[in-house]
Amino acid sequence: MVHFSAKTLEDQLERVRALESRLTFRLSILSKFLDQQAQAMLEGSGVNLTGYRILNVINTLGGTSISDISRFCAMDRAQVSRSATELERQGLVTFKEDAVSKRKKLVEISSAGNALLETIKPAFLERNEKLDELLGPERKAALTEAINLMTEHVTR
Score class of each variant (00 low, 15 high):
G62H: 10
M41P: 00
L49G: 00
T8H: 07
A6D: 13
Q37R: 13
M41G: 01
Q39T: 14
I58E: 02
K130V: 09
S81H: 14
M41W: 00
Q12F: 11
R89K: 14
I120S: 01
E10V: 05
D11Y: 02
L27M: 15
I109Q: 02
N48E: 14
A40D: 10
A123F: 04
N59M: 08
S101R: 13
E88C: 03
F72S: 10
N59T: 07
D35N: 10
R127A: 09
D132W: 05
A78M: 14
D11T: 01
T119I: 11
A123V: 09
E10K: 07
K102H: 03
E126I: 03
T119E: 12
R15L: 14
D76H: 06
L23W: 13
E126K: 06
D132P: 00
G63M: 09
L13P: 00
F25E: 07
V93D: 00
K104F: 03
Y52G: 01
I54T: 03
Q37T: 14
E20N: 08
R77Q: 12
R22V: 12
D68P: 00
F25I: 14
A123W: 02
A38D: 13
T119P: 02
L9Q: 02
E14K: 07
M75P: 01
E10W: 03
A74P: 01
A40V: 07
S21H: 10
A112H: 11
T85I: 04
F95W: 12
Q36L: 15
R26N: 03
T94D: 06
K104M: 14
S81G: 07
R17M: 15
G91A: 06
